[in-house]
């Protein structure tokens, strides 16, 4: 599904990612961990194709196609999706209108999906305006449900979400990445940034990656990596890599 090869990314003239390699197969969901400022969001935004993330070396392949040079919206149309950690507020633009623009589907369909995400009362509200932490995440998931990407990147889906919402959001994300389907039928893939690992209670991730100082330091079982960080902190990872 996604293959990142030897990726180097500059942000404002400074190299933030060095030599990143990542491979996510069809039907697989991976977890990306690492301390604050290690480059996790930069990696997601570079894969998605946002401006300001200058790829100086390396390639990104998506569904077999080299997408390194193609614009953001074409990657989205080709099946990439992203859940934002802090999406912008768009004054005046109603969430319902945005969902129509994203999916082209009618009000009935949108209404069904919106009520699944408890967002029925938000369709006439300005996108993200005055939304709480949980409401922002629910709105993001709803937008992704309408967009139905093949590969979805989630930037800290559990941050700022209360316990009641995390269950709804977790279960809905599991559906987005086909975790509700039998393993042989899974086609959709995901890459999730998490600090806490709470999301792993809802989505059994297939692999974990640890990003430190702009480099992926180790790959492995996500729960094991998380346990190690909890016990010994990120320093252990860096030390381990040096040895």
């Amino acid at each position: 599904m996604l293959k990142v090869e030897d990726l180097h990314v500059d942000v404002e003239g400074k190299e933030v990612l060095h030599n990143v390699n990542l491979h996510i197969g069809e039907g697989e969901t991976h977890v990306l961990m690492g301390p604050n400022g290690s480059g996790k969001t930069t990696l997601l935004r570079s894969i998605m194709g946002f401006s300001g993330y200058n790829i100086t070396e390396g390639r990104i392949f998506f569904k077999g196609r080299d997408v390194t040079e193609i614009p953001l919206y074409e990657r989205a149309r080709y099946g990439m999706g992203m859940m934002f950690q802090r999406p912008p507020t768009i004054a005046g633009l109603k969430l319902g209108k945005l969902l129509t623009a994203v999916s082209g589907s009618g009000p009935e369909n949108i209404g069904n999906f919106a009520s699944q995400m408890n967002m029925g009362d938000f369709l006439e509200r300005d996108v993200n305006s005055g939304f709480s932490g949980g409401e922002i995440k629910r709105s993001e998931v709803l937008q992704l449900m309408m967009q139905h990407p093949d590969f979805v990147m989630l930037d800290e889906p559990e941050s700022g979400v209360d316990l009641e919402n995390i269950s709804l959001i977790g279960r809905s994300i599991a559906k987005l990445v086909d975790k509700d389907r039998h393993i042989v039928n899974r086609q959709k893939s995901g890459l999730i940034i998490t600090h806490t690992g709470y999301i792993l209670d809802y989505i059994e991730a297939d692999a974990g990656h640890m990003l430190c100082d702009g480099e992926i330091k180790c790959h492995g079982n996500p729960r094991e990596i998380l346990k190690l960080i909890q016990e010994k902190g990120y320093r252990e990872c860096i030390r381990c890599q040096r040895n």
Binding site: M48, S51, Y73, K94, A101, V102
Partner: peptide
Amino acid sequence: EIEYLMARGLDEEEATATIIRGFLD
């Protein structure tokens, strides 16, 4: 704001028009 909508598959022109329509609403 434009890139937020582009990440949902709208091209730059569509994203701009959608934001303007909201602005005038």
